[in-house]
Design a protein around this nucleic acid. Structure first.
Length: 204
DNA sequence: CCCTGATTCGC
DNA sequence: GCGAATCAGG
């Protein structure tokens, strides 16, 4: 892959948006995060406001190398603080979309925001399947300690189980460590991947 | 351990 | 110019 103008555009845009190098690399495909970082530097972009790792680069006493790079007088326009815009409540850029989990039990407070978009009908809910009570129980259990990640914070190792209503503020992803090879944590894998007949007669 | 960005240096 | 390897911090 090469840095075509289009790809560079995407790179610039995402970098400006505060996306991490690895996220950009995934988006572009065919490149590693190292490649992205290297390009970012060559392009002269770089220090974004308040980057975690970036601020550590102040070694006052000892210089192990002699960088001659002086401040590059870049007339580049100051990036206009891109206010974290609401991500489209739809399709995450992330892949791995196993079966849509059954609707999360959204505890509807009396004061529910009526944010049901008039545009599209609700996605086809595979349905109110009967999930093993045990599974649901453990899932709810886990949701209490979930890391509550945002779409952006998801990685290949964080549980992508959605909780709450995407149309409200009360929406997040589980985020707990995923089960190896699965997109969800153990508890949610249990709810997501149920054999067709998850329900046996409850032996009580 | 997972992640982040920064830098170096052979190609 | 490119990006893997490496470094360094969280």
């Amino acid at each position: 892959m090469s840095w075509t103008e289009e790809r560079v555009e995407t790179l610039k845009r995402m970098w400006a948006e505060g996306q991490s190098a690895s996220q950009i690399a995934k988006e572009l495909g065919g490149v590693t995060r190292n490649a992205v970082i290297g390009k970012v530097h060559r392009l002269g972009l770089s220090n974004r406001a308040g980057t975690a790792a970036a601020k550590s680069q102040s070694a006052p006493a000892k210089e192990k190398t002699a960088p001659k790079a002086e401040a590059a007088p870049k007339p580049a326009a100051e990036a206009p603080k891109p206010a974290p815009q609401e991500p489209p409540a739809t399709a995450p850029a992330t892949e791995a979309e196993p079966p849509k989990p059954a609707a999360a039990p959204a505890p509807v407070p009396a004061t529910r925001k009526p944010v049901t978009p008039a545009g599209q009908p609700l996605p086809p809910q595979p349905s109110a399947n009967e999930i093993s009570p045990e599974s649901l129980a453990s899932a709810r259990e886990v949701e209490k300690n979930a890391k509550k990640l945002t779409l952006m914070e998801l990685t290949e190792r964080t549980c992508k189980w959605p909780v709450g209503d995407p149309a409200t503020d009360d929406f997040w992803f589980c985020g707990l460590p995923v089960q190896p090879g699965k997109p969800y944590c153990e508890a949610h894998v249990g709810v997501a991947f149920q054999p067709m007949s998850a329900r046996r007669d409850r032996k009580r």
